[in-house]
Design a protein around this nucleic acid. Structure first.
Length: 520
DNA sequence: AAAAAAT
């Protein structure tokens, strides 16, 4: 079954590991990348996560280390944008390396330094690091990159979005000129191209076509719903769809806390994860979710990328994501490894335009769906009760109840009895009150605004008819029009003598370079 | 305007 891997000239130790891991044949990105990377060439791989990317660079990296003379130096550095991803990548590489003596060690912030140093003393050949902590080690002299032979930049576009560009340059600068560089990125914006030009030697570019990478097996829909109703609708959907594992993405850390608390209050097995939690807590939550101790994960975009958790059947965008890119990554947490998945996005009415922007950029329309009504939810709960009843009946493990049942049947008709049983088993939707703070709606995305010309977009927004009602409601509605007239006046005055303010506004960094681009 | 990452 593994011939195709064998044809790629992979050593027997790794073939055995692939067999243990249940891999049968190379994914497209693996088939293309492995020979190139094995030949020692620099490479740019444009691929989303979930395409077998880790093994695509992990296998050649391991082969190269096995072929090289043994030393105590670190041989390979893999850079990762988030801590969770670093842990996951190190684990996967250790799986691939299980029949060799090669060790991969994750190096990331928030973890006990002493413990990390102890593990470093065991001379791992591969480290998988987040940039900040790696630089910390470099400055302390506890990690030297002067002898590495390979560096991998994983999720390069995301590291860039997170402002790691200077860190990456610093790290690259500390590595030898002779190193091999493998760069992976879902998108190829300008700064990544520049990075590649500066640091890669004659790279081979491998691009996966969009349709090979994404989301054919994911049923995508959206529901237009006011913010206040989101939570109840979410609970109804959870009850109706009964996900095995679900991830709920929200826009802020605060909402992670509130939504996960609220879910727990209503009896769901949920935990939240975001960047302000201690690293120990983050690690625990991810582990619980992987082990299915909890079945709902409420997360910010910290969990949007790269995390590969098998069996996620449902993704909910409780809040619309800011970037179309983020939408793709969030939704891609389900439908992995050939499984089907369902992705439901909540859109508040005034964010509909934002949704259209996302649809345009992902070149795909998202199906509109109605929120389940209360009576549908009740019907769903009844169906669940019936399924329960049928399962119990089929298990036929109730001999001790039978004499009572017979007696009941001599006094009541059978239909009434079964109906009563269904009624008792039906779990009425929980309406425990919960508090979730309302978020300000998203504004139309940057790219959209730029279309209208940059200089005037502020005043342009004000003139637009519908725009005014987008502002938060004040208590005195009548004063509204008069107030806006007054504002007009004060704005003019600012224009005359407040040049400094205006300049500041226009000096905001031009983020157009981060605009994701999706090619077909 | 938010999130991520070094303490």
């Amino acid at each position: 079954m593994l011939e195709k891997f064998q044809e790629l000239n992979i050593s027997e130790e790794i073939i055995r590991a692939l067999n243990d891991m249940g891999f049968e044949e190379p994914t497209p990105i693996q088939a293309e990348s492995i020979p190139v990377a094995l030949a020692g060439k620099d490479m740019i791989g444009q691929a989303q996560t979930g395409t077998g990317k880790t093994a695509a660079y992990g296998i050649p990296v391991l082969e190269k280390i096995m072929a090289a003379p043994a030393t105590k130096d670190i041989q390979t550095v893999i850079l990762s944008p988030t801590r969770e991803l670093a842990v996951q990548v190190a684990e996967e590489i250790n799986h691939l390396a299980q029949h060799t003596s090669i060790q991969a060690l994750p190096i990331y912030g928030g973890q006990d330094m002493e413990r990390q140093l102890r593990r470093l003393r065991k001379c791992p050949q591969i480290i998988v690091a987040t940039p900040g902590r790696l630089i910390d080690h470099m400055k302390r002299g506890t990690i030297q990159l002067s002898h590495i032979s390979t560096i991998v930049l994983d999720e390069a576009d995301e590291m860039l979005n997170m402002g790691f560009i200077d860190d990456i340059k610093l790290i690259m600068g500390a590595t030898p000129e002779t190193r091999q560089t493998l760069l992976f990125s879902a998108t190829m914006p300008k700064p990544i191209q520049e990075l590649a030009e500066n640091f890669l030697h004659d790279p081979q570019i491998i691009r996966m076509k969009a349709k090979e990478v994404t989301m054919e097996l994911i049923e995508q829909s959206y529901i237009e719903v006011p913010d206040r109703q989101k939570f109840d609708i979410l609970c109804r959907l959870l009850d109706l769809q009964e996900p095995d594992l679900a991830i709920i993405f929200v826009r802020t850390k605060r909402r992670v806390d509130e939504v996960s608390e609220a879910l727990k209050k209503r009896g769901y097995s949920a935990e939240g994860i975001h960047g302000d939690l201690t690293q120990a807590k983050r690690d625990t939550v991810i582990r619980q979710f992987r082990e299915r101790t909890i079945d709902i994960l409420v997360a910010t975009d910290v969990a949007a990328r790269g995390l590969d958790i098998s069996g996620v059947t449902h993704v909910f965008n409780y809040d619309l994501p800011q970037d179309p890119e983020s939408y793709v990554h969030r939704v891609g947490r389900t439908g992995r490894a050939g499984q089907t998945g369902e992705a439901t996005t909540f859109v508040i009415p005034r964010e509909m335009e934002h949704l259209r922007t996302i649809e345009r950029l992902i070149k795909r329309s998202i199906k509109r769906r109605k929120a389940p009504t209360l009576s549908e939810a009740l019907e769903g709960a009844q169906q669940a009760a019936i399924r329960n009843l049928i399962v119990t009946t089929e298990e036929a493990d109730f001999a001790m109840y039978k004499s009572n049942a017979e007696e009941l049947l001599s006094n009541f008709d059978s239909v009434s009895l079964v109906a009563a049983a269904i009624k008792l088993l039906t779990k009425e939707p929980d309406t425990t009150p919960v508090k979730i703070t309302e978020e300000a709606p998203l504004r139309v995305s940057r790219s959209r605004r730029r279309e209208g010309g940059r200089k005037d977009h502020r005043s342009g927004d004000r003139r637009e008819g519908g725009r005014r009602e987008f502002r938060p409601r004040r208590k005195d509605h009548e004063g509204d029009s008069r107030r806006s007239q007054r504002n007009e006046g004060s704005r003019d005055r600012r224009h005359e003598n407040g040049d400094k303010n205006r300049k500041k506004v226009h000096k905001e960094p031009n983020r157009s370079v981060f605009k994701p681009y999706f090619k077909d």
